[in-house]
Amino acid sequence: MTALKTIGILGSGQLGRMTAVAAAQMGVRAHIFAPDAKDSPAAEVAQTFTQANYNDADALAAFGQSIDAVTSEFENVPATTMDMLAAFCPVSPGHDALHLAQNRLREKTLAAHLGIRTPSFWAVRSADELARALSDLKGKGVLKTTEQGYDGKGQMIVTTDDNAVSCWKNMNIAEAILESFIDFTAEISFLVWRDKKGQTGVFPAARNTHKNGILTTSIGPAAGLDPTTLKDGADAAIALAE
């Protein structure tokens, strides 16, 4: 029998729902915490929920005392929320992982530092910086918000010939990242695990399909890819996690 009786899940969407269902199959209760928890997909299958903001210290304290461990269904939970919950129970992901995952520029910079291949990228914080980046781009790229943005939102296709002032005005943000366009064959994703002893590994890769910038299917194990590509991807995922 597992010592984990109740897992706390920050976030109330489909991933939280799937986590709660998986927990129930292992005999573990789920407690959902989110600003929109009531009548949410995750709360429908959880034993209990708390509807409160992620910076509500009193609600977080009560939540933390009611669970044995906590995780998050998505990366945009404030890192400080995990700091507060760490006083009551084990948290995963922790502050540093969330802080990195919440910003595409920090993610790409870390990957490059680790020697992981990425598209060429430029930090952009003004129309002038965008103009210089577009000049260096020499072709087609994708201009993205560094934070938030998903399912194709918060990004636009640009080229070297585009007007930087107009593009920057359309984005209407304080910080962006420009990435060179990659004409890839397939997208695959890896789920990294780590046990209490610090051993780390990856589950079989999933091959993803998108439509209009929105993920439609993830099928695993990924088929039709050579073993070297899969190994390189797994090694990169573990390096980023560690």
Results as ranks from 00 to 15, higher is better:
R125H: 15
V21K: 11
T81V: 07
A127T: 09
S92Q: 11
H210E: 07
D136Q: 13
T80L: 11
T109P: 08
R125I: 06
A23M: 14
A127S: 15
W168V: 09
Y54S: 04
N170T: 14
T159Q: 10
A241L: 09
E179P: 05
S40R: 05
I9A: 02
A59R: 06
G220I: 08
D226R: 08
T160P: 06
I9Q: 01
V28Y: 08
K108G: 03
N53W: 01
K38S: 07
A112D: 13
T145D: 05
D68Y: 09
T6L: 01
A62N: 14
Q14H: 09
R106T: 06
G154C: 07
V45Q: 06
A112K: 15
G64H: 10
L225T: 02
S135R: 08
K211S: 13
L110N: 05
A20N: 01
A79C: 05
A101C: 13
G115W: 14
N212A: 12
L4I: 15
V70C: 13
A112T: 13
Q25D: 11
T71K: 10
D58S: 09
A223N: 00
K138E: 15
A234Y: 10
K5W: 02
S189A: 13
I188N: 02
F184Y: 15
L134P: 10
G198L: 08
R117E: 15
R194G: 11
I157A: 08
P221Y: 02
R117M: 09
Y150H: 12
F74N: 09
G139T: 14
I219N: 09
A69Y: 13
M82P: 03
E147H: 12
L225A: 01
V165P: 00
G201V: 11
Q65V: 01
S189C: 07
P221F: 00
K196E: 13
S40M: 13
K140D: 12
N172M: 01
S120E: 14
T229I: 05
K138M: 09
T217L: 12
A22F: 01
L98K: 02
G233F: 04
E44H: 04
Q14T: 14
K138F: 00
Q65N: 12
K211F: 08
A123E: 11
A43Y: 02
F121M: 03
L15D: 12
L215C: 12
M18W: 04
H113V: 00
Q14S: 10
H210A: 06
D183H: 13
L85Q: 06
I214W: 02
W122H: 07
W193S: 14
G220F: 08
I188K: 03
K108N: 13
V192G: 04
F88D: 06
V165L: 12
T50S: 11
G233D: 10
R125G: 15
F49Q: 09
Q25I: 01
L230E: 06
N212C: 03
P204V: 07
A57N: 08
V91P: 04
A37M: 12
K231Q: 15
A37I: 06
L143D: 05
I177H: 04
L15A: 11
V142F: 05
F88W: 12
F203M: 13
R29T: 14
I32E: 10
Q25P: 00
P35Y: 10
A87W: 00
L105S: 01
Q148I: 09
C167W: 01
C89Y: 00
G115E: 14
S126H: 06
L60W: 04
G27E: 05
R194C: 14
